[in-house]
Structures are given as structure tokens and as C-alpha cells.
Design a protein around this nucleic acid. Structure first.
Lengths: 362, 362
DNA sequence: TTGTATGCGTTATCAT
DNA sequence: ATGATAACGCATACAA
């Protein structure tokens, strides 16, 4: 037994057949006589050959069987967001027919070490870009330069790149309308991060927001409440929402808070409880995403329900279509407004401002 | 311009150099004169060549730059568990030096479609197995058959496979001791899933538990409370803990509940609140993992703190070591007991049993 | 049903 | 510092 691993040629020789015949036994693409197959299998067994080397196969076929997903954040952070979890489910479903695995890639930005696996150097068949910021365009260029299919989820990818969008602005506008219809005029907004830096604080330069989701949802809120204070968080989590809620409930107290995600909304509710406020009697809160916030019961958030799994599925289907030479479909998904028990008509006792009331309804 | 993509040979020809020289310009492994480099870069640019084809490179070098992580569950479920998130952070840190990407693979079991990307057919350099059940051994065989390095996290992998373990039993025993020292005798246990089927309900066949973590932690509890009722959940989540808590608090009410994860413990606390019980006055609760349960404040769980990131890092370091021909290290990590505010001495008013008290302390 | 021939695109080795 | 050569292991078109 040589130290070198057996190849299909070795197996073929051992079995007394040609390499192509042996190859065909493993790929199953051509009919082979049972006798021949048995010989080949036996030879493989005796040589410890466990199947074709994927590297060589992929060079030959031009397919690696891998689709990359590019996250903006640390992998751990991506894992912590339930919306991503649903998206991954949809994506892996859509990829199942072509049997592609999912390669997690992190958008390292320009300061990446050269050794980092990247869109440039990973053996992939296609890529799904996620996250909608300034870097997406560059990433799209990279992948396209390699001649690989790309789909973009919630980002602006440029012409003829299939994109999966959400009606973020319109949906958020609906929630804001709902809140206004309940009589709320003093409203505050808790937003997702505005850019890669993820700094907390009140928004000053809203035109400079580079995260599409953040910008679009904020615009939807602005359509109804052009002057409401908006506070940016560092990520979509309950604790970030809690921190933002504390800030917003400390000063001129709003009667309603529009949060850009359910996780943030859940945090805002905790902040309200902490401040001795009842939700929704003293403070109305809306979320976004329609996920199940583990442990938030008995509250049922008033929120916009999005189908995150559908986003992943659509992106997966788009790259599969392109891989098979078909025309990919772009898609704009709609959110569904769902009224829960966290919004109620403004009450006279609510919104006890610590300072003068600001009338910010548009 | 031909329809075929440019190769390094085309670039070399265009630049008037040899293919090997052009190759070296991209790999940077050998010194090249500035003039030559510039020529090659320019030629590449003009031909739209974006760098070596990773498939061909990996065939030639024998490296794909990809490490697989095998999960037992749906990808979405894996994403929802905070312990996995931390583990991924550690793993990607450890893999950074060799610049390997992370391929998500799901343990499909025997009923997988042939097309599924798997340990057998994915172009990977190594694998990290996670999840400690009956299937791990088969997976190890598969990967080893390919001659690839493997590391196993919290599972029994057989000889000379590096494994990253936690002192689950000892740690859980500590927590149980703590609870006993507080005077608790009527104790119940909420466990992680017992096997792949993930059925909820009281344990009957504890010897038949195939998930190592579940079995080991349960044994630790059994060292102190051999007869405490143990209820299995379907996954580690607050809602599962809530459901289990409801069951356990409905009948003969224990004065303390040992949960096998913090998420489960958080759910148990919610169940207690729901039942009008105060934690820790009426019910003591312990968790496991030491994660930050988003939104659980003001409770600080009494729990066993594990360093999940260290688990991922150790697994990553083990495969990197093997890839570099060094000896990999197995590692057993210890949990640290952390007393929070969810455990207290048993009080005379607590544990108002609906039936007769069962003395189950050992 | 099986075999023959060829090339997928690269990089390591060695010589120059 | 650069170039020539030879694999890397496989899968397909085509011939037999």
C-alpha cells in the first residue's frame, strides 16, 4: 500500500476496467452492468477509495456545489438574529435541489488580511449578498467579475442583479399610520444601525444612512412623523432596545415608540416596564419582522410580519435559476400589518412629559 | 473577445511572460520584478482576469480553504441557539490564520438525497463535528476515510480524534449540590433533547439518551438527586422551558428546578411567574451555559458558565494543527459555577405540594 | 456497455 | 528573476 491516496485510476486498474468506467460507476450517470459495478466497488473498498476527489471533480465539472452567503457582521452576531435564522432555512431549502452547501463569509471590508477566504478566492458557484450597504456594490463587482451568479437581499445591486426586496418603507408607514390613527402625536423611533460603524445615538444625518433597511423603514416613519426623534442602535437585540428605550423615556416622554425590529421593540417594552409604564396604556410600541420573540409573552407585538424564510428562498431560487441558465426573478415581498396588544389609543394620562410637549406629528 | 473566460495562460501570453511567472504574480510566493508584475497586472486587467480559479488552484495545492461544520439540526435551528453563535465566533477566530471559510453542513442522516452536499462530497480540508450523538461515529469514519482532519465538540469520537469536552457532569453536580445545600429536597430537572427525535416528556429510559450533553448533565444532577423527575424538551429555548415549567409546576410542586440550559431556565422562570410564584423565594431555578439571556433582567441566573467560544476556538485550533502536520490537542473545558439571584434557601411556605411531598434527595 | 483521448486551470519543481 | 515541464484527479465526447 503506497502512502499516496488511491485515485479512480488505481481503482480502475485494480478492477480491471478503464478509468472512465470506474468514474461512471460513482457518478451513476450512465448505465453500467452489475458485474462491472460490483468489481469496481470491490476494488474501491480494497483500496480504501471513498469516492471522487471533490476538488478534481469540481475543476472538471465547473461546479463546486457551494453557494456563499456574505454577512456584514461577525458570524456570531449573524447567528444571533432570528431573522437570519429564518432566512437560512429558506435559503437551504431553495438550494437543496442542486445540493449546494452554504459557505459563510464575512464581509471583512478593505482591511481584510489577504489570507481571508473571500468572494475572490473561495471555490463557490454563486453568492448571496445580504445586508444592503455601501460594500455590496463592490462585492457584486467581485463576484460578477468571476462570472458567478449573485443575488442580493435587501440591497441595491445595480441593474440585472436579481434582488429580493421588502416593502420596508410602505410597511413602516402603515404602522406609523396605525399609531397616528390612535391619536399619538408624540412619537419616537428606534432604528437599526445606520452604517457599518454601528454607533448608538440620535440620528443627525439621515441622508447618510448606508443600511438600506434602516433608511427605508425610517422613511416610512417619516412619511407620517417627519419630526419624531430617531435613535440608532448598534444591533437588533432586546438589550439594545432596552438601552434605547431608557434614553427615549427619560426626557420628553413620547406616547408611542416605533421600533425597527421586534427585538428592539421587546427591549423598549422592558424599558417601559422598568419606568413603571404600562404597555399599551401608557406607551404604545410597534415592532418590525413578526418574529416570535422568545419569552415576550403575554405581549403580542403590533408589528409588520415579514416572511424572512421567503427572502432566503427567493434568493436561493434566483441563484439556482441562473446556475441552470434560466432567467432569475427579482422579488419584492410585502409585509403584513399585524395588530397585537402593544398599541392602544393615546390616553389623557399618557405621555406625561418631563418637559414641554413637542408636537411632531406631520 | 472570446466567450470563454480568460485563464492565467491567456494573461501570461498577453503580458509576454510565462504562465508560471504570471501565477507567481498572483500568489506572491516568489519575488517578481516590479516591471513584470505591472505587465501581468495590466494584462489581467485588460482581459478581465480576476485571479486564479479556486477550483484549479485547490486541485493543484490540495487545499480548498474550507472547513465544514456539521450540525445535527436544521440550519435555522442552529442559528437560533446562542451557544452556537459563540462557538462560531471562536471557530472562525481559530480558522482565521489559515484563512479557511466555514461550510455549514447538516447531518441529514441516512435518508439524505444523494444530491445533498455532504461530508463525502464537499470540497473541504477538514471538518468539525458537533452534537454528540450516535451519528457522530459514522461521520467521523466518512471524513477520516477521505483522509481529512476531524475534531469533535462534545461527543465521543473514538481514539485519536481530538475532542473538545465540557465537564458537564461535574458542573451540573455542583449546581445540584448548591441547591441541596440550600435545603431543597423536592427538585425537578428540565433536560435538553434526549435524541434526534426530540420528543417532549418525562424521561423513562435514561440509559438510552444518545445526546452526550443531555446524558452527562443529567448524571450530574442524578449524583445528588437520584430520584428527581426529569422532563425532556425538544430544544433549548425559552418557550420550551416555559412549557416544561408549566408541566412541572402543575402537579407536586418542586421547590427547585435544575434546567440544562439558560434558555430553558428562563422559560421555567416565566412559568413560575405565570403560576404566581416568586423566584427565588418560592422556587429556585438554575441554568447552564452562562449566556446572556436577552431580556431576562432583572434576574441573574444561578448557572454554570461555559466558554462556548473557547470550544469553537479549540476545535478550530485542533484542525489547523492537523492541517499543518502538528499534533492536535484535545481539551476538556471546565464550567464555572456562578451564583445569581435565582436560587435561595428553601422556605417553609415554598413547595406547597398539591399532593404528598416526595422526598427525592439522595 | 465499455474504453480512449483529451483538457479543466493551476502551481511546484527544477533549470536557466 | 523567469521559464519549461509536469502533474493534480477527474468527467465527458466520442468511438468501438
Amino acid at each position: 500500500m503506497s502512502s499516496r491516496r488511491a485515485t479512480i485510476a488505481d481503482v480502475a486498474r485494480e478492477a480491471g476496467v478503464s478509468a472512465s468506467t470506474a468514474s461512471v460507476v460513482f457518478s451513476g450517470k450512465v448505465v453500467v452492468s452489475d458485474a462491472t459495478r460490483a468489481k469496481v466497488i470491490a476494488a474501491a473498498e480494497s483500496l480504501g477509495y471513498t469516492g471522487p476527489d471533490p476538488r478534481a471533480a469540481s475543476l472538471r465539472t465547473g461546479r463546486a456545489g457551494i453557494v456563499a452567503v456574505l454577512f456584514r457582521e461577525r458570524l456570531g452576531a449573524a447567528f444571533r438574529d432570528p431573522v437570519n435564522a429564518a432566512m437560512m432555512d429558506g435559503l437551504s431549502d431553495a438550494l437543496a435541489p442542486i445540493g449546494a452547501g452554504i459557505l459563510l463569509l464575512r464581509d471583512e471590508g478593505p482591511d481584510a488580511p489577504a489570507t481571508a477566504p473571500s468572494l475572490t478566492s473561495a471555490p463557490i458557484d454563486a453568492a448571496v449578498l445580504l445586508g444592503c450597504n455601501e460594500i455590496v456594490r463592490a462585492s457584486v463587482e467581485t463576484v460578477r467579475g468571476r462570472g458567478l451568479p449573485v443575488a442580493v437581499i435587501e440591497g441595491d445591486a445595480g441593474a440585472d442583479i436579481p434582488r429580493i426586496l421588502l416593502d420596508n418603507r410602505e410597511a413602516q408607514r402603515q404602522a406609523a399610520e396605525h399609531v397616528r390613527s390612535l391619536g399619538h402625536r408624540d412619537v419616537a423611533i428606534v432604528t437599526l444601525p445606520r452604517d457599518g460603524a454601528r454607533r448608538r445615538g440620535f440620528h443627525d444625518d439621515e441622508a447618510g444612512i448606508t443600511v438600506d433597511v434602516t433608511r427605508d423603514r425610517l422613511q416610512g416613519a417619516r412619511d407620517v412623523y417627519p419630526d419624531a426623534p430617531a435613535y440608532a442602535t448598534a444591533e437588533s437585540s432586546i438589550d439594545e432596545g432596552l438601552a434605547a428605550g431608557r434614553v427615549l423615556l427619560a426626557g420628553v416622554r413620547p406616547t408611542a415608540i416605533l421600533a425597527q425590529s421586534d427585538m428592539l421593540a421587546a427591549g423598549v417594552i422592558r424599558a417601559a416596564e422598568e419606568a413603571g409604564l404600562r404597555v399599551p396604556e401608557d406607551l404604545s410600541v410597534t415592532g418590525f419582522d413578526g418574529i416570535v420573540v422568545d419569552g415576550l409573552a403575554p405581549y403580542a407585538l403590533t408589528t409588520l410580519v415579514q416572511d424572512a424564510a421567503a427572502k432566503g428562498r427567493a434568493a436561493g431560487e434566483a441563484v439556482v435559476a441562473m446556475l441552470e441558465g434560466r432567467e432569475p426573478a427579482s422579488l419584492t415581498l410585502s409585509c403584513t400589518f399585524r395588530r397585537g396588544n402593544t398599541t392602544a389609543p393615546v390616553s389623557v394620562s399618557a405621555g406625561k412629559a418631563l418637559g414641554p410637549r413637542s408636537d411632531s406629528a406631520g
